[in-house]
Amino acid sequence: MYDRILVATDGSDNAQRATRQALDLARKYRAELHAVYVIETRTEYDNAIVDSDVVRQNLREEGEEALTAIEGEQDVSVITSIREGVPHEELLTYVENRRIDLAVVGAKGRSAFKTILLGSTAEALLRADQVPVLVVNSTAE
């Protein structure tokens, strides 16, 4: 049913839950798991206060850490990727280029908007209707 599953991670608790679900599905269907971390590039920084290169490097290190944890999984073929750009756009491009069969995402990521029902990336993936999307909420285990 699924040959290639994408899991989007930002290191948040919801993303970790989504990763566990994606790993379970990849094992069940013997699918390749594509773990993708996107460094958000829409955020602007006042260069007199924050060095954007330092922020980007910190985010890259965070992404590498999140992906390394997934790479160590047993019995699952894992392909990891760190991309830069608008998260949902990068994920949709990846889905198209890699012919992903299912995308798994957390309901909400690391956003300051904790009251939003569904995170902007998850919502954008659903609206694009390009691939089936499994949205994992904060209580899923």
Rank of each mutant, 00 (worst) to 15 (best):
Q16T: 15
T93D: 15
Q130P: 03
L25V: 04
G72T: 10
T68E: 13
S111N: 08
I70G: 05
G106L: 07
V54N: 12
V133T: 03
T93L: 09
T43K: 12
E65W: 01
V76Q: 07
R127Q: 15
A128Y: 04
I82S: 05
R56V: 10
D3F: 05
A8T: 01
E61R: 12
G72S: 12
D75G: 09
A8V: 03
E40T: 07
A26D: 06
L23C: 06
I70P: 00
E40S: 09
L125M: 08
T68W: 04
E123S: 15
Y2H: 05
G11D: 05
L134N: 10
N58H: 13
E123W: 08
N137E: 12
T19G: 07
E141P: 04
V105R: 00
A35G: 01
G109V: 02
L125I: 04
R127M: 04
V86K: 15
V78C: 08
I49K: 11
R110S: 12
L102W: 01
A124S: 14
T115F: 11
V135H: 03
T19I: 06
R30P: 01
A128H: 09
A124I: 01
N47S: 13
D51T: 07
R42F: 11
D10E: 05
E64D: 06
Y45N: 07
G72A: 09
I49T: 15
R42K: 13
N58I: 10
L6R: 00
L33W: 01
A35V: 08
T80C: 08
A26F: 03
L125H: 00
A124L: 00
D13M: 06
A26R: 00
D24S: 13
I100D: 09
V76T: 02
A31T: 00
T43Y: 10
V95Y: 00
A103R: 05
T80Q: 06
T68S: 08
R4V: 01
E32C: 06
R42N: 14
L126K: 06
R110H: 11
A22D: 01
N97E: 12
E73M: 05
A66C: 05
M1I: 02
N58G: 08
R17V: 10
V55I: 15
D13V: 10
Y29F: 14
P132T: 11
T115V: 12
Y29W: 13
F113R: 13
T19F: 09
I82N: 02
E141L: 11
D75P: 01
F113C: 10
D24Q: 15
D46P: 11
V76N: 03
G106T: 11
K28E: 10
D101F: 02
R42Q: 14
D10A: 03
N97I: 04
K108F: 03
T93E: 13
G63W: 00
T43R: 13
K28H: 12
D10T: 06
A26V: 10
D10L: 04
I79S: 06
L126G: 04
E71K: 14
E61N: 13
T115P: 06
N14Q: 13
H34T: 03
T43N: 13
R60A: 12
K28L: 13
K28R: 14
Y37Q: 07
A140M: 08
S120N: 11
R83N: 08
A18M: 02
T41V: 03
Y29T: 05
R30S: 11
D51R: 09
Y94A: 04
L134T: 09
G63A: 06
E123F: 04
L117T: 15
S52W: 07
